[in-house]
Structure formats: structure tokens, C-alpha cells
């Protein structure tokens, strides 16, 4: 039976530096969750804290309703896949996978036949059935990754923790493995938490994504939810390219440079920033919008074109993407209207 993982108000400092500043979250049984964040955001620290590899100052970790603190390392049964796999280089692939089983106390240790069966099943599961006798140095990066996964699964973990599982692989292998891992998760239904700094990886794989920044969770939701409804400017920015336009809120409308640019019903008066994805602009006749200016750059990638629109009262030119033809022309005077934006009040 898959187990739920609950993290309650975890705090952790490295010297003076606060790595985790009160993190709480729950991973549902059988869920595949991503911890997404830039480097230094505390995601790996959180993963290690859950595994018991870091001592935390405050807070607790629960597996279902068992406090992890009450469990020894052995009894925690965490399947941890390290960023660089940490395969035991002096042991064969087979022995790497068997390690967790052989390390058990004699009474709990399966007999040789059982170990043999389980290791081979796992090697088959990760499609390495033929390579049991090899040593880690004789494997490719992707193969090592799968050995590490099989080794972690061998101890029948309560939960599976993966630290940047694809970080050390090249692009094509990454893609293949991503898909494979998704399928594997569907098959074994293990509660899984993985760390990544790659938003595409997180959104493609995970049921839900927790976005970490400066040691706190900024948002925890499904990939769709966090993309469509980012709770904070950071989340919005981190998930994809955005243009930021400062606006004035008055009477349910957002004004830029004194002109109405966006509908802001339900927002109180004050100042705010509009976060607009590049493809959510529409080009229009000059003067039809306060966001008017000159096209200062155009280029095309695949079916899309990208253009930079330099607007007089904006510090940075707006980046605009589109599929429509004809393409904007360099030096052309145009205006941009906003189709949709995220609005965050400035403090």
C-alpha cells in the first residue's frame, strides 16, 4: 500500500543561512510530486531532511501517521536516488541492487533464493536484466540511473526520493528516461518525490508540483494550476517567460501611463504589476493601446515568430510571440493589446 508523506513546518539552517524556513506539505499516497526551484532554494535540503540525511531544527516528517523521528535509518525505508547515483563502484550491478537486502539484520534478511528473485525482477523492471555482472564503471549514464532506481526500490521503500534524477544526463536520454519513469511510476504506484530545477521536467512528470524559493513553498498545485494560476510573481516568472508592466488600479481597471490596459475587476485600488506571457499579446494598429512603440527585433523559430517591442515608458522592451501572418516588420510602429495577464499587487 502506498504511503502518504507529510512534512510539517520544517526549518533548517546552515550556519547563519536559513535553507528551509518552515516548509509544510503532504504528498498523497501513490502521488508523483516534483520539488521545483532554482538552485539554493532548499529543495535538495528538503529531500535530504525527509530522508533523515539532514538534521532539522524544527518540524517533523510523517509517513502516514508515523513520525520519522521515531524510526531508525533502516526502518525509515527511504528509497533515495542520489543526483550522481552514488553507485557502489566496487560492487557489481547485481550486488548494488542486492545491497539493501543483504544489509538487513539476519532475522529479516531474505534467503539467497529470495534475494536472487527480487534482484532479477528489479533488474528486469529497469530493463537491465542482462547487465547484473557489470560494474558501474561499465555502464552508460542512463543505465546507472536505472541501477540506482532499482537499488532504491529493492528495500521496498515507503516513499521514493529522487534528487535531480535526470540532471547528469544528456538531452535525448533525459527525454526517454522521463517518459519511462512516468510509466514506471504508473506501474508500481509508489509515493514519489523528486527534485528538479527544470520546470518542463516537473510539469511533464508530476501529478503536483511544489515550487520552492528561499526555503519556503511558494505554491503547491497541479502543473496546470500553477501555470494557469500562479500564486506569486516568483512562480509566474519561474514557470516561463513573462513581461512585467507596472500598472495603477482604480475602480476595477488597470491603467498604464494613464490609459486603461487591462480589466481588474475585484481588485482594490493601488499599484500592481501585470505579468504577461509573450504569446498573450496581440498586435494592433498604433495608438489603439498605450503599449505602443517600435519593433526593434524580429526572428523566427519554427512556426513562431518573436519580436521585441520597445515602448517609450517601459524600461525593457516587451517580448511578443505569435503565429499569425504577416510577421511584424523591423522598425514598424505598432501597438500591443493584452489578451490575458496575471495581476500581482505590489506591496
Amino acid at each position: 500500500m502506498p504511503v502518504s508523506l507529510t512534512v510539517e513546518n520544517i526549518e533548517k539552517k546552515f550556519g547563519q543561512f536559513p535553507a528551509l524556513r518552515g516548509v509544510s506539505m503532504t504528498v498523497a499516497p501513490g502521488e508523483l510530486m516534483a520539488l521545483l526551484g532554482p538552485s539554493g532554494s532548499g529543495k535538495t535540503t528538503l529531500l535530504r531532511a525527509i530522508a533523515g540525511l539532514e538534521q532539522v531544527e524544527k518540524g517533523r516528517v510523517l509517513f502516514d501517521d508515523i513520525d520519522a523521528e521515531s524510526l531508525s535509518f533502516r526502518d525509515r525505508r527511504i528509497g533515495f536516488v542520489f543526483q550522481h547515483y552514488a553507485l557502489f563502484r566496487h560492487l557489481s550491478v547485481y550486488e548494488n541492487v542486492a545491497f539493501g537486502l543483504r544489509a538487513r539484520p539476519r532475522r529479516e534478511r531474505p534467503n539467497e533464493g529470495e534475494i536472487h528473485k527480487r534482484v532479477n525482477n528489479l533488474l528486469d523492471l529497469v530493463q537491465l536484466g542482462e547487465l547484473g555482472a557489470r560494474f558501474p564503471s561499465q555502464l552508460s549514464g542512463g543505465q546507472r540511473q536505472r541501477v540506482a532506481l532499482a537499488r532504491a526500490l529493492a528495500i521496498e521503500p515507503r516513499i521514493l526520493l529522487l534528487d535531480e534524477p535526470f540532471g547528469a544526463l544528456d538531452a535525448q536520454v533525459r527525454k526517454d528516461l522521463r517518459q519511462w519513469l512516468r510509466e514506471l511510476h504508473t506501474r508500481i504506484g509508489q509515493t514519489t518525490l523528486f527534485v528538479t530545477h527544470d520546470q518542463a521536467e516537473a510539469t511533464e512528470l508530476a501529478d503536483r508540483v511544489a515550487i520552492l524559493n528561499h526555503g519556503i513553498i511558494e505554491q503547491l498545485a497541479s502543473p496546470h494550476e500553477i501555470y494557469e494560476h500562479p500564486q506569486t510573481p516568483f512562480v509566474c516568472k519561474f514557470l516561463g517567460e513573462t513581461n512585467v508592466i507596472p500598472v495603477e488600479l482604480k475602480g476595477g481597471q488597470a491603467y498604464f501611463d494613464g490609459y486603461r490596459v487591462y480589466d481588474a475587476t475585484n481588485y482594490a485600488d493601488g499599484t500592481a504589476d501585470l505579468y504577461i506571457r509573450p504569446y498573450l499579446f496581440k498586435l494592433a494598429q498604433p495608438g489603439s493601446s498605450p503599449l505602443s512603440g517600435i519593433i526593434t527585433h524580429v526572428h523566427q523559430t519554427g512556426p513562431y515568430w518573436r519580436a521585441e517591442l520597445t515602448v517609450g515608458n517601459l524600461a525593457k522592451p516587451l517580448t511578443i510571440e505569435g503565429l499569425t501572418r504577416p510577421l511584424p516588420i523591423l522598425g514598424e510602429h505598432v501597438a500591443a493589446t493584452i489578451e490575458s495577464a496575471h495581476l500581482f499587487k505590489t506591496p
Binding site: 547485481y94 539467497e112 534475494i115 536472487h116
Partner: peptide
């Protein structure tokens, strides 16, 4: 003698000549 067990097992299971 966990050590011995560990390596005996290797002998039975692995066909690779290096392990012996």
C-alpha cells in the same frame, strides 16, 4: 559472517568470470 554470505551469493548468481 555477513561478508562471506554476501560474496558466496555473488558466486552462485553471477555468471561473470570476474566475480569468482
Amino acid at each position: 559472517m555477513g561478508d562471506r554470505l554476501l560474496f558466496n551469493a555473488g558466486k552462485h548468481v553471477l555468471v561473470h568470470p570476474r566475480s569468482a
